[in-house]
């Protein structure tokens, strides 16, 4: 039998909720990013052929914001599922403790069967829990990569913006905002990852 590490249900429930909290805040910023991207699209459209190079980049940001909001929503769903599983494990652990106490007081064959079944359920739940926590990690990794890319593209955006005349200031300002939002989202993702790491190392 492959032994899968069992993390404290209390810590697991807290971690999942903390991750959901970080991603809730990140998705709020992603909505601001989306707005900034839409504004830049409008300016680029107004500037016309003079800033043709910026069209693709501003579309990229708009698309990125949508993807981030979607990912944050998915992560929130997974986090909630993990939190539910942690509470369920918590209840099962308590049940097993009480059943063991009962067996110490009066040994009973029927209770032994219940203990065995409960332990199997605990094992199944623990396996599912481990799968979900890995999935959460990879989703967070994906957002982090998006944000790193976003910051690089924001630099190109700013460079391109310097080539324009009348729209230069406004476009540079937008690039700065996009960069700032991407950095903030990345920070929330890093915080979420460190909550998970603390659990995995416990």
């Amino acid at each position: 039998m492959i032994m899968v590490k069992e993390y404290s249900p209390v810590k697991s429930a807290i971690t999942a909720s903390q991750v959901a909290g970080e991603l809730y805040r990140a998705s709020g910023i992603a909505r601001q990013l989306s707005l900034a991207a839409k504004n830049s699209q409008a300016v680029v459209h107004r500037a016309g052929s003079k800033v043709a190079g910026l069209k693709v980049i501003s579309e990229y940001f708009a698309d990125l914001a949508i993807k981030t909001i979607k990912l944050a929503k998915e992560i929130n769903t997974i986090s909630l599922d993990i939190s539910h599983m942690a509470v369920e494990r918590w209840r099962q652990n308590t049940l097993v403790e009480h059943l063991n106490d009962s067996q110490v007081k009066t040994k009973n064959a029927a209770v032994d069967i219940i203990i065995k079944d409960t332990k199997q359920r605990q094992l199944d739940l623990n396996n599912r829990f481990n799968v979900e926590i890995r999935s959460l990690e990879s989703q967070l990794e994906e957002i982090q990569q998006h944000m790193q890319a976003s910051r690089v593209v924001a630099v190109s955006f700013r460079l391109e913006a310097t080539q324009t005349d009348e729209y230069q200031e406004i476009l540079e300002d937008m690039a700065k905002n996009i960069d700032k939002f991407s950095e903030k989202i990345k920070q929330h993702v890093l915080d979420a990852k460190s909550h998970i790491n603390r659990l995995l190392q416990s």
Binding site: A13, I14, S17, A20, G21, L80, S83, V87
Partner: peptide, 18 residues
């Protein structure tokens, strides 16, 4: 109740730390 504990915890932590 116990049935909504995990949802409550997740929702509260969106606004304040534990």
């Amino acid at each position: 109740g116990i049935e909504i504990f995990s949802s409550m915890l997740s929702t509260i932590l969106k606004f304040i730390p534990l």
